[in-house]
Design a protein around this nucleic acid. Sequence first.
DNA 1: GAATGCTACTAGAACGTTCTAGTTATTATT
DNA 2: AATAATAACTAGAACGTTCTAGTAGCATTC
Lengths: 323, 323
Amino acid sequence: MGKVTINDVAKAAGVSRSLVSIAYRGVQGVSEATAEHIFQVGKKLGYVPNLNAARLASKKLNTIGVFLQDLHNEVFADVFDGIRAVLDKGDSQVVLAVGSAEPGHDASALDTLIASQVDVIIAAGLTMSDSQLAKYANRTKIISVTRKAPQVSSVTSDDYHGAKLAVNHLISRGHSKIAFLANPQTDGYTDRLRGYQDAVKQAGLKPMIQQTTYARVQAELDAVKLIAKKPTAIFAHNDMAALGVIDALISAGLKPGQDIHVVGFDNTSLSQTPVLALTSIDPKSHALGEEAAKIALNMLKPSAKKQESVQLTPTLVIRSTAP
Amino acid sequence: MGKVTINDVAKAAGVSRSLVSIAYRGVQGVSEATAEHIFQVGKKLGYVPNLNAARLASKKLNTIGVFLQDLHNEVFADVFDGIRAVLDKGDSQVVLAVGSAEPGHDASALDTLIASQVDVIIAAGLTMSDSQLAKYANRTKIISVTRKAPQVSSVTSDDYHGAKLAVNHLISRGHSKIAFLANPQTDGYTDRLRGYQDAVKQAGLKPMIQQTTYARVQAELDAVKLIAKKPTAIFAHNDMAALGVIDALISAGLKPGQDIHVVGFDNTSLSQTPVLALTSIDPKSHALGEEAAKIALNMLKPSAKKQESVQLTPTLVIRSTAP
DNA sequence: GAATGCTACTAGAACGTTCTAGTTATTATT
DNA sequence: AATAATAACTAGAACGTTCTAGTAGCATTC
């Protein structure tokens, strides 16, 4: 079980170590015949190039670090799919790190990526403070996805506009008591809040806001409080929270889409299922991932701009919880 | 932005490179005072140990590779939480790789983990063939989670028993036309199928089986076919498929839990929501992750057994789709 | 007061790659 | 026929750590 190294392959194939390296990296400088020979010997010996050694020795290995906040929220799976759709075509490598409910965990995940010497970091759903994020941006190239941040490259959806879309849809359907279930811990909180407030104000209505936290169960509890205030429609800061609202409605014997209308945010595959049929704002998560990956690839080039931000325009997807 | 190395810190702190290494690894051999001094200098210079170099030089770095098949399926998030619950306490490091819908992708993900020189691999939801998996097991220590495999360490739920639980529950409620929506591509397919068949046979009933694939949308289409055969209850191979079944029922104007009963498998947080209230078999995903992590830690020790397998006993969680 | 053990530290050789600067052949150009 | 250009290959120095074997100093033991 002793590890087979590049030297073993070189010796067995009767060539230099350098040539084996060239062959395995697939760069020019080796004849097709010898390359084939080297691969055969390598395969026989069970040679697998040591990625750590490669990353140490190589300056230009195009390693991209990806951070995902929460595996339980499908948004991040969508973003990751988008990232991979772009990256899989090229010759870059991906190092993954995921966050957790614990507060400081996203910082330590970024630390691990930096320690792995990634060239760029794509971070989706960071919860750290703006100032902490700015510090990281000083140390490494970082692209924040879903979370807007001053001084840092970001790929986001226009949360303000998305919130307005949601509320205006409800207003156009004649609602006058529109509540907002907000999560201050989540990306785009301030923008969605502003969008909600402006839309409500412009229609001459009164805002009705309830704060909640990340967990769906908590959203359900807070939704109960909100329902007690008798709104006719509820806009939830994301689909997971919207699910909490629907749960609360059902437990209260109310029918979503009839007694109270509900709009979510994220348009996850969950909202698309006929059971839920959740009207939701589509932030184009997959496209966010793609854009972030493209920027990441740009940043690998020496000519890269320091900062580059993209904002996509969300759309409203009408389903039966708010027809 | 030039990288700060251990040598820079050593020089600036007036100590040897070795001592800086000792301090940062937190091992014995440095006085508290100098360690503090080293950290201060390191912090001032912005030193971050290069993980690649460390992994290359070190023999005993306790690196554990984790493979997750599909970020869209919450089971794997649960498993990962379990893994982390155990691993976060120790001093091991985790390298993550995730699969995708593409067929050969899980093999290349394992290759990457092996190339990263991980000491053990915890692989959740592998879809490769038994023989291919056996080959990997020859090359590296590997623990298969959710997927049982001969000759390979595995942590699984008793799928046979789980399927029987589901079917027997339906039988006890008086059902006589119980269908099974099966996915041959998924873990535990054969066992769940056997469990279903045996339970049905023992009750003197006729099996009614429809195959489907991984995607939920496909499950919905296949569920439609199944419904045409007029079963009174449907057992789905997992929660995602059960969701497809429920979608199909609703589209057909039928009420799950009333017109047709539905049982899923995985007990994901989704099934727990009041909207769905899906009766499901709980394979203890979180515990599976924990057990796998414990075995992985055992395997790091030189005295480790070659193969170690654990099987947990699933339970039935009754909710309103099959009361 | 010599031997022993312990703590705090260091020098220098690994670890397995990549990369720069060559060296040979071989082919093309004048 | 001489020169230039190209292709195929190599030697050896990085890369930034860890680890083994050791030294110096000091307290403890007999």
